[in-house]
Design a protein around this nucleic acid. Structure first.
Lengths: 191, 191
DNA sequence: TAGCAGTACTCATGAAGGTGAGTAGTCATG
DNA sequence: CATGACTACTCACCTTCATGAGTACTGCTA
């Protein structure tokens, strides 16, 4: 039961359909969770069966109807209970870091390329997150908003996403540069 | 097949037993992978069956014997193939960020407490990682080591871990402060 | 008017990961 | 000399996650 709470938390921001959640979870809900569409639909079905969310049909013209969901009182209680239990340690799984760890005995070229890819992705996400921050805080500056704003939760978690993406980008670029320089040097010495 | 490569990468640093890997993976192999002991033992068994690692018995006095493993040629090829395939996007799952996202409608007190816990954990990990960096680079300073050192892979991935932990600590403390101040303010206003 | 991209969702399956419980010997501590 | 902590490892089960494939309707574009 983990995706469960992420979905509930996402639905606090408004009513969403499974498809809309797909978009939100695709970029990783401010970077703290990822899920595939099928998982989301399955989870929504379960959540509704458990009475933690309610769905209602929205009739649309020019496109298929959709069912949007919102959190019920029971859902809020569930979230409250969840928030009160000790947090599991941050879970990270990173292919690329594994590759970097092993890079001394491997061909560094593809790893360098992947580092650049990742840096680009991080930059793109960072931009999305920074737009989101602007939208969330409206006309207020950050300090004022954090002091007086209404919904600081999403803002705060998005800040975490920003930090992560910024560091990811910096690390990828530095690491790629380091490996690139070593490759060039090794090339000169062997030739 | 994912833990698989993390285990292979970890075994590049030397021969380790399942139990030793437990310790390494417990703090998260420089923060890029976590696995429970049972998973590691199971994975080692499979890796050995597939000829990617070989084990040998080490007889010990005063404590149980152990089996240590090292990567074979086939294992290295497997890693090389893995390094050449495009990296999966970074996977993050963070309970605490979900809680922060939802904090506006919940009791912030337990969340604040968990943020402090997390900050402490991050500080502890950071210290471990910084010790590891010192050990890895020996007498050289970082720049020289990265230019001329032999095994920079583990160093580089550990740098990623450091960045992550530093940011985690900073974010947790800032977020806890923000939420704490808002709580105090709300308390004054209601009373 | 064929074809493709987008919205919206479902079904099925298997691999990967998580967890509790248990064994067995050694060592230090009170 | 009992208790708990540490090393070292195993078995078994169950949840979660990941993936491919498929349906259906709309609107745009070439």
């Amino acid at each position: 039961m983990a995706l469960r709470h992420a979905v509930l938390a996402a639905l606090l921001d408004g009513e969403y359909s499974g498809y809309q959640l797909t978009k939100i979870f695709d970029i990783g809900v401010s970077n703290f969770w990822y899920a595939a569409p099928q998982q989301l639909y399955a989870e929504l079905t379960k959540l509704e069966a458990d009475g933690l969310v309610t769905g209602r049909e929205v009739v649309q013209r020019g496109r298929p109807n959709k069912r949007v969901f919102k959190v019920t009182g029971a859902g809020l209680s569930e979230l409250a209970a969840f928030a009160a239990t000790p947090a599991k340690p941050l879970l990270i799984r990173d292919d690329l870091a594994v590759k970097v760890h092993a890079v001394d005995l491997l061909d560094p070229a593809p790893v360098i390329e992947q580092l650049h890819d990742r840096a680009r992705q991080a930059a793109a996400k960072l931009e999305v997150f920074e737009q989101l921050l602007l939208r969330l805080r409206g006309e207020l500056d950050e300090e004022t908003f954090l002091r007086q704003g209404e919904n600081v939760g999403p803002y705060l978690s998005c800040l975490a996403g920003c930090r992560l993406e910024r560091e990811t980008r910096a690390w990828c670029l530095e690491t790629a540069r380091t490996l690139g320089e070593r490759m060039a040097r090794a090339g000169r010495e062997t030739s």
